[in-house]
Design a protein around this nucleic acid. Sequence first.
DNA 1: TTCATAGTTCGACGTTAACCGAAGCATTCA
DNA 2: TGAATGCTTCGGTTAACGTCGAACTATGAA
Lengths: 228, 228
Amino acid sequence: MKEGPDISRVAALIGDPARANMLMALMNGKALTASELAAEAGVTAQTASGHLGKLQSGDLVQVRKQGRHKYFALANADVAAALEGLMGLAAGQLRTRTGPKDAALRHARVCYNHLAGQKGVQMYASLLRRGLVREDRDEVALTPDGISFAEEFGIDLDGLTSSRAPLCRSCLDWSERRTHLAGSLGRAMLTRMETRGWVRRDADSRVILFSRDGSAAFEAAFPAVMEP
Amino acid sequence: MKEGPDISRVAALIGDPARANMLMALMNGKALTASELAAEAGVTAQTASGHLGKLQSGDLVQVRKQGRHKYFALANADVAAALEGLMGLAAGQLRTRTGPKDAALRHARVCYNHLAGQKGVQMYASLLRRGLVREDRDEVALTPDGISFAEEFGIDLDGLTSSRAPLCRSCLDWSERRTHLAGSLGRAMLTRMETRGWVRRDADSRVILFSRDGSAAFEAAFPAVMEP
DNA sequence: TTCATAGTTCGACGTTAACCGAAGCATTCA
DNA sequence: TGAATGCTTCGGTTAACGTCGAACTATGAA
């Protein structure tokens, strides 16, 4: 009867609307303070404090104290992946109300800290097609060609590989139902595109906006792969 | 504030212990009746009826009426994938109590309807290594070599490809944190191994037991890939 | 020191939802 | 036809949990 881990506790943790909103707000990878999360969830500071305590003891978020602020972030990439999985289910059954922002979100958005949406899967597909990354088992790895490509793109691979987190990871996209690039490389790719001026993040959403030049440069660097 | 789909509803649906137990019981892919699920969840028939109604209207399970029985099954593979994602989180934080069955579960179990656990990822890794399947984008496909291999293995590919469901899919394993083969091919592979007498399913758990000959045959067919 | 801001703790209120007993349909078997 | 089984609906009880007001601690600024 009791096989495997106890799902219901984690699910119940995510199951509260206020907590779910907080987690969704953290999906852009940036750390937020308790009051920001309270506003995001639409509750007062006291209740937010309670929720954040539960999220923390449930290992869904990590916290860093800084001065009189407390910064919260998702605990790890697994949490983000699990949330995306739930989003896939929720999107499937609730196809009503396709808000105005939804189109922009599907086009390009930030997932935890990397590029997601149509442009995310396009980039990943292009990398795969050109043999720059390879999926071996579930591990995603840069090929030799990919290593030189990444360095040419302006990414400090030595700095990345020294960290604990896996360099490459694949993450299932809830809107596209395809995989896109995650991991520290995915994160570095996105920040590099920001510093290059290709993209910028919308201030109060997860939308990623392409500049005119950036859009052209992106299409040149990661041409869309023909559908099968 | 309200971006993307509403996660909390689905999560709350899974968040109840009784419903979570039901879903876990359905993870072996077999359809169960309402009373079996009631027993599995440890509740009476009435409350189970209520829970199953919610799961159904939440599109997490599908139902088929047969005589005076109602058979429930997971709605689709996406549900199974989302549940596995949650299991990954729950397993991470609750590393206590590694029951006696856990070792067997990690070794080989059924996930929805295909092989999971150490043996599942071993098979998938071997298929990849030998070039029998290829991951292109997130789509997994049989190579020409893989097609002849599958037919030689005794699988009717024509019958499979005619169905709606994708032939190959990858599914993240919560215990191994690696990918294994899902989709209708993954399902067919497992049933083929059963009819060949390589494996049999434990009656009241998700454990898959290898026969002596089956274990040897499996190792010969899908040799373990060296760790990187 | 004094004030303002960030966050927490406490207590009380209200809503929600799980749960079961009992009764009611529906289907199958004798 | 009657009896048994599988499932559902209805009421009423109970417990859990989210919510906020008010009071409290801690850090930083004037």
